[in-house]
Design a binder for these strands. Structure first.
Lengths: 150, 150
DNA sequence: ATAATTTAAATTGTGCACAACTTAATTGTT
DNA sequence: AACAATTAAGTTGTGCACAATTTAAATTAT
């Protein structure tokens, strides 16, 4: 049979399952923080730069308003963030950490260490893998730009 | 600030976005085949070994019945597969390709080539990346086993 | 043989992810 | 200034993904 159609030979499939399984690893770690994986990503962004608008948040995470609007709504219900309109541009919604959302950062501080411990990976390998993933994304973006040119 | 909580330093985030963006690349390629990405994965399995049961299908793709049951239902509606009960074990549901589902294989034959063309990646790099992803998954499984032991 | 346990699918409920569309604010053009 | 085009969020609808539960069939234990 045509080898190229074999499931295990598809890089997309390996990426897809690796990502799913790593996310599964996060679930029990994030549960005590009362966060899903996607919500955790939003919190990571806000802990880096608080008070950004939804569009910026979306571009950091490659998520559109259809995903982010309800997700942020849930973070508001939990009490980790709050929304407000930007004064200079009434279209923009600013997302800001609450006291509780800020405080959560201390609790989350050990999450990365827990995960890398689970992966049992040394620093050099970790860096090499990060570069590969960055490269894959760069190739995808390059293709996107080549497309746009025509 | 604590570097370990920076979004871009998280291997999970790079995996998550790389997977999402690669899947996005597939969408326009799979649209003419009338398939979503997940449905395409199911078809890949069936083109390899037709007539397997749902549980085997799920273990190949790391998907449970909650995902697969409705997904297969949609493939039946499209007309690519059909279900039947296993005669030796009435619990098992056998999924089989229809004429139309089998024929689709020819149309799908060039999908992998299209994708690797888009990625613009040479064979050696491709192999290296596949090994990385396999290794990440192996580490995740190792952890899972270490857990179970205790 | 009968009861207890396990297993395979399906169902229900929650939360992404994204396309397509709507609404309102802003910017650009004439 | 008035109109067109663009932009930011939100909404609706579809399809995963998975936990938890249910139902029925098959195994195992007693």
């Amino acid at each position: 049979m045509d080898q190229s159609l074999k499931l295990e030979h598809q890089i997309c499939f390996q990426l897809y399952t690796a990502s799913k399984e790593l996310t599964r690893l996060y679930r029990p770690i994030l549960a005590p923080l009362n966060l899903t994986y996607s919500q955790y990503l939003v919190m990571l962004v806000l802990w880096e730069e608080d008070g950004i608008d939804l569009r910026q948040l979306g571009s950091r995470l490659t998520l559109d308003s259809g995903t982010l609007s309800p997700l942020v709504k849930r973070l508001i219900q939990i009490g980790y963030v709050e929304k407000s309109r930007a004064t200079d541009d009434e279209r923009k919604i600013i997302v800001r950490l609450t006291e509780s959302g800020s405080a959560l950062r201390e609790q989350a501080a050990n999450v990365p260490l827990q995960v890398s411990g689970m992966l049992n990976i040394d620093e050099a390998t970790y860096v090499a893998y990060m570069e590969m993933l960055t490269d894959i994304k760069a190739r995808l973006h390059d293709f996107g730009e080549r497309q746009r040119e025509q």
